[in-house]
Design a protein around this nucleic acid. Sequence first.
DNA 1: AAATTAAAAGAGTTTTTTATCTTTTTATAA
DNA 2: TTATAAAAAGATAAAAAACTCTTTTAATTT
Lengths: 144, 144
Amino acid sequence: MFSKSCEYAIKAMIFVAQKSKDEARVSLKEIAKGTDAPEHFIAKIMQELGRKRLVQSIKGPNGGFYMTEKNLQTSITDIVKAIDGDKLYLDCVLGLKACSEVNPCPVHFEYKEIKRNLIKMMDTNTIGKFNEKLDSGSFFLKNL
Amino acid sequence: MFSKSCEYAIKAMIFVAQKSKDEARVSLKEIAKGTDAPEHFIAKIMQELGRKRLVQSIKGPNGGFYMTEKNLQTSITDIVKAIDGDKLYLDCVLGLKACSEVNPCPVHFEYKEIKRNLIKMMDTNTIGKFNEKLDSGSFFLKNL
DNA sequence: AAATTAAAAGAGTTTTTTATCTTTTTATAA
DNA sequence: TTATAAAAAGATAAAAAACTCTTTTAATTT
Ligand code: SF4
Ligand code: SF4
């Protein structure tokens, strides 16, 4: 569904949110370790997320990544669109061209409902909410 | 969600089912044209589907691909598993390790329901049903 | 039986994705 | 104000996916 880069991005965003309370910085090394991603690969991804202002970064000694209140409002959708683009939102599984509401393929209405739910989930689940649920202790992220 | 190969496979299966009533054969060229896929690429895919007996093939003059009654009972799931394997069914979107019902991540229950619906759709929609709906005229496959 | 047709099989090539390595820039601290 | 720490940027490299070309095998038709 998502590219590997995108999976890492989601994990990294959650990881930074978890580790960086009160603007404490999280280093690339920690992120790489915490998300089980290759260090230089996750570096590229963090750069992209940083460029798109989904996360804050500071160079130099004691530098690293952290999140603002606004960053915590980032949804899964925001991350996916930043890394994989919006093809997941625009395209259909079947990859058919020229189909529409008036000319639907046999699975259109079933599929549409599933997709609607999926997108709703990705739109409404923000990093911040994710974080709160984790903090509450009823949810977990083993081997994040 | 699916690989390109898998999308072609689904389209090709539907195309063959539509074109080959009463064991009439459909040639690779026709399939390539009908599915908008590169001829030699779809050839490989048809070979694989043939090897796994999801479609029948006959060589030589007047040869080509066709479907038996049993082939028409092939579900989307069968095609996906034949081409992409079952990672879509086993893995989670988030790609987290070591998560479970007792240690669920914050989106687990929401996601589980969506996945259940998606798999149900793929399990229950067979090429034959797809075909019937198309024949009935209330559904379409423009630019299949 | 020979010629022909069409898929199967095998062997590339190209493109995209994933991953790694090196150099540069920026901020901090001594 | 120099040394250092850490991210940004740039350049490769490896692996996987998508696509192409060539040869072989198996039917069919003449
Ligand atoms: S009709 Fe709907 S479900 Fe079918 S291919 Fe088009 S967008 Fe997808
Ligand atoms: S807990 Fe459930 S939803 Fe979350 S990563 Fe694991 S399988 Fe996926």
